[in-house]
Simulated scan of single mutants.
Amino acid sequence: MQLATAQPARHPDPTTKATALAYLIFDRPDLERAARFLDEFGLRTVSRTDDALFLRGTAATPFCYVVRRARAARFVGFGLQVRDRAALDALARLPGASAVESSAWPGGGWRVRLTDPSGFRVDAVCGQTPVIEWPHRAPLPFNSVDTVVRVNGTQRPPVCAPDVIRLGHLVLELADYQATCAWYTQHFGFIPSDVQVLPDGSPAVAFMRLDLGDTPADHHTLALAQGFAAVYSHSAFEVVDADAVGMGQRMLQQGGWKHAWGIGRHILGSQVFDYWHDAEGDKHEHYCDGDLFTADRPPGIHAISREAMAQWGPAMPKSFTKPRMTLPAILALWRNLRRSPDVSLKKLKTLAKLFA
């Protein structure tokens, strides 16, 4: 399939190469309600003040989720880990970047604060003090027709919130799609794994992975989707196996939280997934068994549709991609139709029809 418009492509000489998705930053008016969802989702609080909440998974990272007390709820941005201080020095020379500064957040280290072309805050971080990995249950042994590994034993996973191992990926919707994709490939070395395109060949979603060379990287750490405004779509957190995904569904149902979509298996990335809304309606995903690619794998090009989102499981509901048409959203739509080269009524109508 030929592309009618430029797609995200690996940059020949990026400013640096990110090595991990470090954390997410949210503003919330009610820290207690935010904490209840995240605890029942499987994250654990490591630090709390009157104004901020820091949470982590079982992996050896100081934290992966920040909640700041604020009057209005919003997604602020995220952190990307880079290799060393030299990488921070290079990023600090970019237009609008902060100087290299010490971080007072758990784990300490150094950071540079940037703003991407869509207005999201991006922290480049390095030098955090590692923490001890917390234990989590082992994956359940799985009998198949060809291999028997469990005899005289049963499957009884604990009835509790699943242990989140780590923050896996982030998905954002954008008005300025091309400029934002190019910014991440140029300055953080992201590589497109798969690109979904509209019927005319123009790109609509880029699933982008870290460039870790011969070390396998997640199919996507950052996915960027064409929309009419810059908004958070969802974030995803890895759990140990499909039973943990299922147990997460049970516990979140019991907690009274709103289900978004699942359980199913994605096509691009292959993850077994389940999505839930937090207290403010933002989507959070449990997943396991994702694809891993080395840096030399070329990108794939695919037609976009609701059917292209999952191999099995319930069809993606219309509500999953339906925008919240608040007054700020309507104003952003009007503004971006006039100023963004990537937003047009024709493109938005096509996207709406494909996901109707």
Rank of each mutant, 00 (worst) to 15 (best):
S319H: 05
D243R: 10
M208E: 07
A124S: 02
M309C: 12
L292P: 00
A59R: 01
A204K: 09
M1L: 11
L38R: 13
P192F: 05
L38V: 05
P29A: 09
A315Q: 13
S235E: 06
V82A: 04
R137I: 08
A230E: 13
R83W: 00
V122P: 02
L140H: 12
A236R: 06
A308N: 06
V131H: 01
A315I: 07
P317M: 09
N336E: 10
N143G: 09
Q128R: 08
G300Y: 01
L94P: 03
T180V: 02
S102I: 03
Q81M: 08
G264S: 12
Q254M: 13
Y23M: 01
D218R: 15
P139I: 10
A104M: 06
E307S: 13
G119F: 05
E133Y: 00
A182D: 15
K318F: 04
H187S: 01
P130F: 02
K258F: 05
G246L: 15
V231Y: 06
S98Q: 03
A329C: 03
A99M: 06
A179Y: 03
K349M: 09
H234Q: 05
A87F: 06
Q249V: 14
Y23C: 02
G264D: 11
L114D: 03
Q311N: 11
P62C: 00
R166H: 05
P135N: 10
H234W: 02
L21A: 01
G168M: 03
L55H: 01
F273G: 10
M309Y: 06
L3E: 10
Q271A: 14
G248H: 04
R44I: 01
D243E: 13
A34G: 15
L94C: 06
A99Q: 12
V245A: 10
G189C: 07
Q196A: 12
A175D: 13
A138F: 10
T221G: 03
A332T: 07
A99R: 14
A73Y: 11
T49W: 07
V46G: 03
V131F: 00
A22Y: 00
K258H: 14
W110P: 00
L53H: 09
F120P: 02
V100D: 05
R137A: 13
D278L: 09
D27L: 05
L222V: 03
R306Q: 08
P216E: 07
L331I: 02
S193A: 14
V100E: 04
S340F: 06
G79N: 00
G168Q: 07
E101R: 15
A59N: 04
P203K: 02
V159A: 14
S270A: 15
G153W: 01
S305D: 09
A182C: 06
A72T: 13
L351Q: 15
E280M: 09
C288F: 08
L351F: 08
G153P: 04
D89K: 07
G77H: 03
T221Y: 01
H11C: 09
H11A: 14
A242W: 08
P135C: 10
R265W: 11
L348G: 06
Y287A: 08
